[in-house]
């Protein structure tokens, strides 16, 4: 009896000291989607993690190349190939690109034009202004001239092939590509046996399962620095579009990277919009669309997709969909 008691007590002593918590593994990839991707996994061995991490990294690289509008790659038909050739006749891109374009056309309709991947000519003008040694403002006449060639109905998708009815048009997938790629890479990690992980591709965070200590905590940045609020998720995706993420200044005025298709200038309704929903591609599309939409139509669109959203207005005031605060810590 006494031995039995002592055994139990020894077991208690040992188990109190060393709980076998699943190990945490992380990797960062700096060469995808002009941003940094972070991959965090709980559980398994280092060997398991290295295998999955390599697969996730190559999947992100593969999709990055497919959606790249600036570079060509040997033997690959990508977004640049489509931009350069689709005016001359049908181009057949990889299935992922075709799928993304189909979904982009849908999102354009759903958002009443607030999300438009055919804004290429306008975005490339702003891109040149921002990246110049001395950033400058685009010439207004040139800007409205470019705006004439941003009609997404001139994008013809038919049986897997892409063509442009307007020879001056071009596509920019920046609003959708990261969220879509994060979703695809997360699906791949899941299929390789990962159950508890988070993948962030430039601020598009996909979570699966929980951490050993509970749900994943995602801080929502305040546009003026620091953290505005923190949300807890397990399985959902979180993304923020903000005017502070990429911008340049001319004469003390800030010009950020999210261009309103209606005005062709940086959207000014909100400073940031955060979206929480089940699918990372939807979350990315929604956050960009909502950034260019008023609260009423934006919250109606979010509701349609079971998404929750947080808006930060020009004076720092916040608005939320009804269910957003349920996620807040």
């Amino acid at each position: 009896m006494r031995r039995f008691l002592a055994l139990i007590l020894c077991f208690l002593l040992i188990s109190s000291g060393c709980e076998a918590a699943p190990k945490r593994y992380t990797a960062a990839y700096a060469d995808v989607f002009d941003t940094v991707a972070d991959f965090t996994v709980f559980g398994g061995t280092q060997e398991d993690f290295d295998k999955v991490s390599e697969a996730v990294h190559s999947e992100l690289l593969r999709l990055h190349r497919i959606f790249d509008i600036y570079n060509e790659y040997d033997g690959l038909v990508n977004a640049k190939t489509v931009n350069d050739n689709a005016a001359g006749g049908p181009v057949v891109p990889p299935a992922e690109l075709y799928e993304l374009l189909e979904s982009a056309v849908l999102w354009n309709e759903r958002s009443g034009g607030a999300l438009n991947i055919a804004l290429g000519p306008v975005l490339s003008l702003w891109h040149d202004c921002r990246e110049a040694e001395e950033p400058y403002l685009p010439d207004p006449d040139l800007l409205s001239e470019c705006g004439q060639h941003c009609d997404i109905s001139e994008l013809i998708l038919s049986g897997g092939s892409v063509s442009f009815a307007d020879p001056e048009m071009s596509l920019d997938l920046g609003a959708l590509a990261k969220g879509y790629a994060a979703e695809k890479a997360a699906e791949l990690a899941e299929s390789l046996g990962c159950e508890h992980f988070a993948l962030s591709v430039g601020g598009n965070v996909v979570t699966r399962g929980e951490k050993p200590t509970g749900m994943w905590e995602i801080g929502i940045a305040s546009p003026d620095g620091g953290i505005l609020t923190t949300v807890r998720v397990a399985g959902e995706c979180v993304v923020t579009s903000g005017d502070y993420q990429r911008f340049f200044e001319v004469d003390g005025v800030r010009y950020h990277h999210i261009i309103d298709p209606k005005t062709l200038y940086p959207a000014s309704l909100w400073r940031s919009v955060t979206v929480i929903c089940a699918d990372s591609a939807d979350a990315d599309a929604l956050s960009t669309a909502l950034f260019c939409m008023d609260f009423e139509s934006g919250s109606a669109l979010a509701e349609k997709f079971g998404a929750e959203a947080l808006w930060v207005g020009p004076d720092g005031e916040t608005k939320r969909t009804e269910g957003f605060s349920d996620y807040e810590v």
């Binding site: 941003t35 972070d38 601020g203």
Partner: peptide, 21 residues
Amino acid sequence: VIICLPGRVAVRISGGPDFVV
């Protein structure tokens, strides 16, 4: 986080949430 992409440098304040978006 502050990221210098061309230099592949990331500067991050530890503690707090798992990610900030």
